[in-house]
Design a protein around this nucleic acid. Structure first.
Length: 732
RNA sequence: GCUGCUGUAGCUCAGUCGGUAGAGCGCGUCCUUGGUAAGGACGAGGUCACGGGUUCAAAUCCCGUCAGCAGCUCCA
């Protein structure tokens, strides 16, 4: 006998070899019918199980029915199998790759020469309907690893062979969509599955797109077919409606409708034009943060939008991230060629030594500037041998240095990809004592990154954006307090705006990924500092390997947009690297130079992305203090137009953002338009109001608030018009 | 960058088989002077994204470019 502990802590004794289905049946016929799977815990963590799987010993057991979120995952996994079978039936040459459940549905990656089109979805759904109508059981069987591998190899699908090879354990499992192996479609799969296809009550094939094998862009591209499934039709309909509703909140749509910004292909992809109504929102956020920064001892600085390439050679941004940069600006052909030569030598592998392109570039350089060419190549005999390029692989660093010296006379420029190098040069422009630290240099700095074309999207991913950036230079002892303060400030800006639905991610480096700088001690120190700061803040955070910046670990505040994509907003980063690269120092109490630690931080992240997310958060209905237009003054007729004009002027003089609507329209459409523009208040002015010097106050939800004396209305608005303030009608 | 889809008036969209362009909203003018979610009439507005090709004829078919959308990849 085995002892099964149920979620209510009651214990049931079952014969050896009993299944979860047996337990369900023992509890009641209703549950037996409703159950689709189970979660068992034998003492080393929960595992999901097929209903038909024998329980192997005493355990805690939770039976899953259509009411459990976990059951939905199982259902979707099974639906992925049904869809795969349907596709294989329609296109027998299909090679299946991988088909997991995901949030809100499932997908199956397939290799198929026929390009699936939306017209094909219906055909696939029809085949699925047949499989579901047959109400076939899912049947699991297992084989030894060897036999299983031999079987999969015989079947000749290289992807499944690879999956089988990568599978852990000494047995491989297969699922037949039918009562017995051999006669029905089957798939190598570890499970779990629902008992019968008939449980799939509602499903839909949603989309198809490309996906790289193993998520590697250098590998071949597969077709990824997305679908979803539910236990009842109503839930599916609700899901589809929800998706549609979410799209109405899309900042790209609202930003256009509300006249906040424009993305103009004539100006360039990913380059935001802030229209007056959007600019005011951004400006108010900036002004508010600027005031907070001054309170916290930050010092404003301004730096230019470009800098010499050599600055970014020192920082390490060039050439390593040049795919993501706008091409450098060169003053002369010689500067361009010298830079290209420098990059070619810098990026040559040790085996390659002297790069192939180098001779071609030198040839071009001879034409562009024979003087430099002859000095570099030794054709000018007056140049010492130490200043002449050499071709042996050991000469790499010396060669780079020689070219860099020549570039001092005429370098290229780069649109700045980050603000830190210039802020660092401000720090370096003065000697610092430990008594000066921390130095906190703040700038709303606009940076340019050449995002690849498929990534540019609305305000959330752009090619020119403004960071609410600051760099803190401090002693190692001060680091924890500085980090704590940055985290607190970031939480403040999010919560002031009611953005509470965020997650916190600790981004750590991946020692095996060459994109991260090599300095194990610095990483260890910085990651320990970041972890300590996160722990001290009391926030729950998830650690993710490979999510660090190339120079150091970070704590990111991540939110989702209206279609479920995640975006990093605020970020706090520790950097032990750049102070070394720029040889920064301060004089300590011991009268000796010491290395400062740097913190990079941006509570909003990027103003563009932040405002984009904020538009979606408020559905365009900004709280009074941020609303581009706070009040529309709407005159009922010409008879009240003069007084309406007075109301409008009074509001403006009181520092409120008002618009006057004295057009020859009825009050209905005037109010309708103001509400469509999500203006918080509409002041209706008729002859009665004019006579009494009052305003009739309405909000954008359609509520009539009633008549207020003009002065009272002004003071009510002024009181509400505070950063972080929320008017009665604002969404939260 | 990759795969797929899309691009017609300021906006949302129709346009059949290849036969020379349409609606609603918005905009302008006029009428209406009004009381809380769209008053009426008239009018203007298009190089059918751009460039090639096929054809007697292209918004429509083919190729390329640009841009947008979804996913993948990337995000210092």
């Amino acid at each position: 006998m085995i002892k099964i502990t149920l979620p209510d802590n009651s214990i049931r004794e079952m014969p050896d070899g009993a299944t979860a289905a047996d337990v369900a049946a023992a509890i009641g016929p209703g549950l037996a019918k409703a159950a689709v799977g189970a979660i068992a815990d034998y003492g080393h963590g929960p595992v999901t199980l097929d209903l038909a799987a024998p329980l192997t010993g005493d355990c805690r057991l939770k039976l899953l029915t259509d009411r459990n979120e976990e059951a939905l995952t199982i259902l979707r996994h099974s639906t992925a199998h049904v869809m795969a079978e349907a596709i294989c039936k329609l296109w027998p040459q299909t090679k299946l790759v991988y088909g997991p459940p995901v949030e809100d549905g499932f997908y199956y990656d397939i290799d198929l020469d026929h390009r699936l089109k939306p017209e094909d979805f219906e055909k696939i759904e029809r085949e699925m309907a047949t499989i579901i109508a047959e109400d076939r059981p899912f049947t699991r069987y297992e084989m030894s690893r060897e036999d299983g591998l031999a079987k999969v190899r015989r079947e000749g699908n290289p992807y499944k062979v690879e999956n089988a090879e990568r599978a852990k354990g000494d047995r491989l499992s297969f699922y037949v969509t039918g009562p017995e192996p051999g006669r029905y479609w089957e798939d190598l799969c570890m499970g779990t599955h629902i008992p019968r296809t008939g449980r799939i009550a509602a499903y839909k094939v949603l989309s198809v797109s490309g996906a790289f094998l193993h998520g590697d862009a250098s590998k071949q591209q597969l077709q990824r077919v997305y679908g979803t499934a539910f236990f009842d039709k109503k839930k599916l309909a609700e899901h589809l409606t929800r998706l549609e509703e979410a799209r109405k909140r899309d900042h790209r749509k609202l930003g256009h409708e509300l006249g906040l910004f424009v993305l103009d292909p004539v100006v360039g992809s990913g380059l935001v034009l802030w229209k007056p109504k959007g600019a005011i929102i951004r400006l108010l956020l900036e002004e508010h943060l600027r005031a907070k920064l001054r309170e916290r001892g930050y010092q404003p600085v301004f730096t230019p939008h470009v800098g010499r390439l050599d600055l970014y050679r020192t920082s390490g941004h060039f050439p390593y991230y040049r795919d993501a940069q706008f091409p450098p600006l060169y003053e002369s052909d010689a500067a361009r060629l010298l830079n290209e030569l420098w990059v070619a030598i810098a990026e040559a592998t040790p085996a390659e030594g002297w790069p192939k392109d180098a001779d071609k570039l030198l040839g071009e350089l001879k034409l562009a500037d024979e003087n430099i060419w002859s000095r570099l190549t030794g054709a000018d005999s007056g140049v010492p041998a130490s200043q002449v390029l050499r071709r042996d692989p050991q000469a790499r660093d010396a060669n780079l240095q020689i070219i860099r010296e020549h570039l001092q006379a005429g370098d290229g420029y780069l649109l700045k990809p980050m603000n830190c190098p210039q802020h660092i040069r401000i720090y370096a422009s003065d000697p610092h004592s430990y008594r000066d630290l921390p130095v906190r240099l703040a700038e709303f700095g606009t940076v340019y990154r050449y995002e690849q074309s498929g990534e540019v999207s609305g305000l959330t991913r752009v090619r020119g954006f403004t960071q609410d950036d600051a760099h803190i230079f401090c002693t190692p002892d001060q680091l924890q307090d500085e980090l704590a303060s940055c985290l607190e400030l970031t939480r403040y800006v999010l919560e002031m705006l009611g953005l509470r639905d965020y997650r916190v991610r600790i981004g750590l480096h991946d020692p095996n990924d060459p994109k991260f700088i090599k300095n194990p001690e610095a990483w260890a120190e910085a990651e320990a500092a970041i972890r300590a700061a996160a722990a001290r803040s009391g926030m729950s955070a998830t650690e993710e390997i490979g999510e660090a910046a190339f120079y150091g670990p970070k704590i990111d505040f991540v939110v989702k947009d209206c279609i479920g994509r995640e975006w990093q907003l605020g970020t706090v980063q520790v950097d032990y690297n750049l102070p070394v690269r720029f040889d920064l120092s301060y004089i300590g109490a011991d009268n000796r130079p010491h290395r400062p630690v740097m913190v990079h931080r941006a509570p909003f992240g990027s103003m563009e992305r932040f405002v984009g997310i904020l538009i979606e958060h408020f559905e365009g209905a900004f709280p009074l203090w941020l609303a581009p237009v706070q009040v529309v003054v709407a005159a009922i007729s010409e008879k009240s137009a003069t007084y309406a004009g007075e109301v409008f002027e009074t509001l403006r003089k009181a520092g409120l953002r008002a618009e006057l609507d004295d057009t020859a329209e009825k009050i209905g459409p005037k109010k309708h338009r103001a509400r469509q523009m999500k203006v918080p208040y509409i002041a209706v002015i008729g002859e009665q109001e004019a006579a009494a010097r009052m305003v009739n106050v309405n909000d954008r939800e359609g509520r009539q608030i009633g008549n207020l004396a003009l002065d009272d209305f002004v003071s009510k608005l002024q009181e509400e018009n505070q950063p972080g303030g929320r008017d009665a009608s604002a969404q939260t």
